[in-house]
């Protein structure tokens, strides 16, 4: 399997990268981790004429808490998230998710920004970011702009990142108080795309009442999906078994999976219900710690 030929540039600054994107126009693609793009090019499903490799641009790789946000540089590798102390301490959802993304070699190169910017509802981070209420920073010729995650995914392989722009940072409201999060996906074997995946974030007051909730779903809709009705029923509730069951039920009703080799619609809705329930419970138990 061999890609069509293309031109390759490896700029060392963001300005340079953006200038090249403008120079080459629509046929240019950004090469981040490359572990989605290069296989597609080898299969000749994608044939960009210019690749702009942004791996040599310094300053795009970090995981830090700052200004009330968890900030993750777009070029941060999955493995760096997996190994980050802040993540271990407060954002276990990333531990859950990264373990299930492809395999260790892919996670050594695959980037968080790339996982989002690929615009694929089968990827895992979109649902995580939805649950965590992330904002995405996009840099273009005229500077930076910020897009809420709910406005980020716009279509099949299409996101708010316009041509000539680069996704540069992901910002997640920092964990505070009784905060817990969890992710799981059903997969046919390790490293597979999700049959169905659910990300959950729960914040509670000291009485155990839910003050904030986020539920994101993987690969059960054309776009990464926020389970809004599930969140609504959770927020303000006492997180009783009945409430959680209702949230799970809503998630399974509100998604719109399609049948494929991984399962039919019924099975996927069923999994969404079961996993939503389990992930809410897992997030709650983490929030209590």
């Amino acid at each position: 399997m061999i890609a069509e030929n293309f031109n390759y540039d490896a700029p060392t600054s963001l300005d340079e990268a953006i200038a090249l994107l403008h120079e080459y126009g629509d046929d240019a693609k950004i090469l981040a981790g490359g572990h989605s793009l290069i296989p597609m090019m080898k299969l000749r499903f994608a044939s960009p004429t210019h690749l702009i490799d942004i791996n040599n641009i310094p300053g795009l790789s970090y995981v830090k808490e700052e200004d009330g946000y968890l900030k993750i540089g777009a070029m941060t590798k999955e493995v760096e998230v997996e190994e980050s102390e802040i993540i271990h301490a407060k954002y276990q959802i990333f531990m859950d998710a990264t373990k299930l993304i492809a395999d260790p070699q892919v996670r050594n190169f695959g980037t968080l920004g790339g996982n989002l910017a690929h615009g694929d509802a089968a990827n895992d981070h979109p649902a995580v970011m939805i649950a965590l209420g992330a904002d995405v920073e996009i840099t273009g010729k005229d500077g930076k702009r910020t897009v809420g995650i709910d406005d980020f995914f716009q279509g099949f392989y299409t996101t708010a990142v316009e041509h000539g722009e680069v996704l540069t940072e992901i910002r997640i409201p920092a964990a505070s108080g009784n905060y817990g999060s969890a992710y799981h996906k059903a997969e046919r074997k390790v490293g597979d795309y999700a049959t169905a995946g659910v990300a959950a974030m729960i914040q509670m007051d000291d009485q155990g009442r839910c003050t904030k909730a986020g539920i994101g779903l993987t690969n059960v809709s054309p776009l990464p999906l926020r389970a809004s009705r599930s969140e609504e029923v959770l927020i303000g509730s006492d997180l009783s078994e009945a409430v959680i069951a209702q949230a799970a039920q809503y998630a399974s009703e509100d998604c719109s999976p399609s049948e494929d080799l991984r399962g039919n619609v019924e099975y996927k809705r069923h999994l969404v219900s079961v996993i939503t329930k389990r992930m809410i419970n897992k997030a709650i138990s983490r929030a209590k710690k």
Partner: peptide, 28 residues
């Protein structure tokens, strides 16, 4: 062809990598 098997795994700066999914120019 799909980064699935790992037979091509090498280390790049100490990190295990599937060298069928990385361009030679990237390893400069």
């Amino acid at each position: 062809d799909t980064s699935s098997c790992g037979a091509c795994t090498v280390l790049i700066d100490g990190k295990s990598a599937k060298s069928c999914t990385i361009l030679a120019v990237q390893a400069q």
